[in-house]
Design a protein around this nucleic acid. Structure first.
Lengths: 188, 188
DNA sequence: GTCTATATAAGGATAGAC
DNA sequence: GTCTATCCTTATATAGAC
């Protein structure tokens, strides 16, 4: 891995633990074994690091969603399951990075911020369409789409917690989330 | 409302929008119509504001949980429903403050941080006991308790989103969350 | 590509006049 | 209780030697 990638990785870890604004370039430099000024031979600015982390993850989710949409023989339930798996896989690949993507995007500056929010909105819209499809086909209950959307996605937004703390496998996590989020906690 | 409370309120709004670390005392002062130095006639430090916001909300959740536990004739499903209502009510009372409580606690310093985390752990433990009860009584499916706990609580941790963006009533939100989180999205 | 030194800005917080 | 002035620290980022 080159210096730039090592910096991104160390930055993701720090941004996750302390938050973007509370992380200094001096701390980051120490983590990668350099002086602060030396970082600027590899990156343009602190902001650039955040942009890279956020946009890379946005790209992963967008690409994953496109694949799910393109598999035409999945019904709404199977699509939701695929989305759960997508979130678990991305979180398992790089926990720190996806946490920064989730929690620190608000420190992005224009015009990157608008670009980021547009992508997120589009992703949410894709999930919304699947939920609507499911309700129309009577595969899903007639719930408020907005509440379902936010409840579903925010549950998935915190998957990294489990990987960070626990020793649960991707498969078991996916299976459990599928049961809980789609079929509910209650015994029916 | 006295000056101190006005400062807390303005601070919660700013901390929520920009994050604790990215909010300056000068900005906060401007919001309440003062110079930065004048704030210190009402509060001891920036940190004290965060402490107040976090501990007040922690207190609300702890108190609410105690009441739910004390109602002895509720079964696990009814207790979970009560917890949903508790989160909706607290979020509806003061959206900014509860968001700061959720997202900015990591900037607390010791010994307050440990105290805060202890309270949070205790709250999670209470929910866990209810989930275990529900599984033992076969009211709930045999899911991984940790996944159920985190999935349930994190869904509720983002309720403020709905109040901020939408025009949904507390009653309708509670009802929808109950359906989704307890009985699942899927039609059974 | 890394370092030391430094420019420049902004941060939290205090002193003391009114 | 609020102000102006300021202390002191820390921040991002650049310049220029090696």
């Amino acid at each position: 891995m080159n210096s730039k990638e090592l910096i991104f990785q160390a930055a993701a870890k720090l941004f996750r633990e302390k938050g973007y604004a509370a992380t200094s370039m001096r701390e980051l430099a120490t983590q990668v074994g350099l002086e602060a000024s030396s970082l600027y031979n590899h990156i343009k600015s602190k902001e650039e690091i955040l942009q890279e982390i956020c946009l890379r993850n946005a790209g992963k989710f967008t690409a994953g969603m496109k694949i799910i949409q393109d598999i035409s023989n999945l019904n709404a339930l199977q699509k939701l399951e695929s989305i759960i798996r997508l979130h678990v896989v991305i979180a398992s690949e790089d926990i720190s990075s996806v946490t920064v993507f989730n929690d620190e995007w608000k420190h992005l500056k224009e015009p990157v911020l608008s670009n980021f929010l547009k992508q997120r909105k589009q992703y949410e819209q894709s999930v919304k369409v699947i939920l609507q499809e499911g309700i129309e086909q009577e595969l899903l209950k007639k719930v408020d789409i907005e509440v379902a959307l936010f409840s579903f996605l925010t549950s998935l937004r915190w998957i990294h917690y489990k990987f960070a703390k626990g020793r649960i496998s991707s498969e078991r996590l996916t299976e459990n989330l599928k049961t809980i989020l789609i079929f509910g906690l209650a015994n029916s």
